[in-house]
Design a protein around this nucleic acid. Structure first.
Length: 425
DNA sequence: CATCATGATTGCGG
DNA sequence: CCGCAATCATGATG
């Protein structure tokens, strides 16, 4: 460090030579032996102090005289040698900096986050990379992504502009220092190694600044991520139509509410949500339905009626056969289903892929149709006789793991035991 | 503001 | 990897 400051202060003027020489007792001795009068250190110091009082011209003249001395080159080389030795010894102490693991970590993260990666090429690419890094699985919540992407782009822009600024400043400063040192090397001994070392020091300084920049960028990205990509924080209820579709599927496949991958994709497309969201929904629905069937009875009836009516209509239309269009002339449920028949029909059709692969979904439909015929006939009968007990209808063993569904205690108000004649039937 | 509804996450077992 | 069960965190509601 001392070396450094000396160099830098030396830059200020012509005193550099004298200063450097004084700093090195060896050189003093040599200079003395060069034929200068026998002077002690005090005298030399006196001279040096006097230099400050000299005019510029005088100083220049002295400098020139020194430069022209015939021994000057030899002297310089000796001094350089000596300095090199000391520089090397100092250098040995603070050796090369290892590839800082911290900065490696930051770099990797920024790269993974799409901040430092390929430039603005395509925001989508970077965002995709970020999403992939975030979820590990291709979970894409496309709705909030635009917001996230915008913020990320903002961060990236700031990061890059700052980085560029630093880099520019760094090279500028390096150039400046190198020029000065080169300039000085004419008047005082500076070995190339010394310059190299100075440059290294400068770069270290700047890279530590860069690390701060990277650090804070990483923090910003983390905050952004936690705020935007943590779906739990940004939970939105699905829209009415989506839950409608999902419920329809669920209750019309109540005997086996496990949609296949294709079915999930279909539902996802229909509901404008992701496949994993569909999976989540069915997972939640199954567990919650099983936990408290009573609570879902009304809903079940509702959708059973709807799908049943739809199924009836479909079958009536598909094979323009017979059966005087299932009478939805019932009470309140009937009227409800009537009002919804239209879109429910549509959704059912597209759900089945325009009725192409009816085969797998035929059975459940028959089930619901079967039930619904009873339903539409006499709705209130259900509560009494327990005709409509969706579970255990056929081989639907999906809900009898260990549950022993908490009996009528939790069921809604009404005739305590009789409302839904639980699992018993 | 308390409470319920609901989508998402986590830990576990197969 | 999938489903289940428990749990979390937020939205909606009164």
């Amino acid at each position: 460090m001392d070396d450094q400051t000396r160099m830098l202060t030396g830059l200020t003027g012509l005193a550099g030579l004298a200063q450097a020489d004084v700093g090195d007792p060896d050189s003093v001795r040599k200079q003395q032996s060069l034929g200068q009068p026998q002077q002690d250190i005090g005298d030399i110091l006196q001279q040096i102090m006097a230099i400050t009082d000299e005019s510029l011209d005088e100083a220049q003249a002295r400098k020139h005289a020194l430069n022209c001395h015939r021994m000057k080159p030899a002297l310089f080389s000796v001094l350089c040698e000596i300095k090199e030795k000391t520089v090397l010894s100092i250098r040995g102490v603070q050796e090369e900096d290892p590839p800082d693991p911290q900065i490696m970590r930051l770099d990797n993260m920024l790269l993974a986050e799409g901040v430092s990666g390929p430039e603005k090429g395509g925001g989508s690419a970077a965002a995709a990379a970020a999403a992939a890094a975030a979820g590990g699985s291709p979970t894409d919540s496309s709705i909030e992504h635009s917001d996230y992407r915008a913020k990320l782009a903002q961060i990236r822009q700031i990061y890059h502009s700052e980085l560029e600024k630093y880099e520019q400043a760094c090279s500028e400063f390096t150039n400046h220092v190198m020029n000065l040192l080169r300039e000085q090397s004419r008047t005082r001994p500076i070995s190339p190694k010394e310059i190299e070392r100075m440059v290294a020091i400068i770069h270290r300084k700047f890279s530590s600044i860069q690390m701060q920049l990277k650090q804070s960028t990483c923090e910003a990205v983390m905050i952004l991520r936690s705020r935007f990509l943590d779906a739990r924080r940004k939970r939105r209820n699905f829209n009415k139509q989506a839950t409608e579709v999902l419920n329809e599927y669920f209750y019309s496949h109540l005997s086996n509410p496990y949609p296949s991958e294709e079915a999930k994709e279909e539902l996802a497309k229909k509901c404008a949500i992701t496949v994993s969201q569909v999976s989540n929904w069915f997972g939640n629905k199954r567990i919650r339905y099983k936990k408290n069937i009573g609570k879902f009875q009304e809903e079940a009836n509702l959708y059973a009626v709807k799908t049943a009516v739809d199924a009836a209509n479909v079958s009536a239309q598909a094979s323009q056969a017979n059966s005087p269009a299932t009478p939805n002339s019932a009470g309140s449920p009937g009227s409800y289903s009537l009002s919804h028949t239209g879109d429910a029909y549509l959704s059912l059709r597209s759900l089945n892929g325009e009725g192409l692969n009816i085969a797998p979904s035929l059975q459940p439909q028959v089930d619901t149709l079967h039930r619904a015929t009873h339903l539409t006939g006499g709705y209130e009968e259900l509560s009494g006789s327990g005709l409509y007990t969706p579970h255990r209808l056929d081989a639907n063993s999906w809900q009898d793991t260990t549950t022993t569904t908490p009996p009528s205690v939790t069921s809604p108000p009404g005739p305590p035991g009789s409302v839904h004649s639980d699992t018993s039937n």
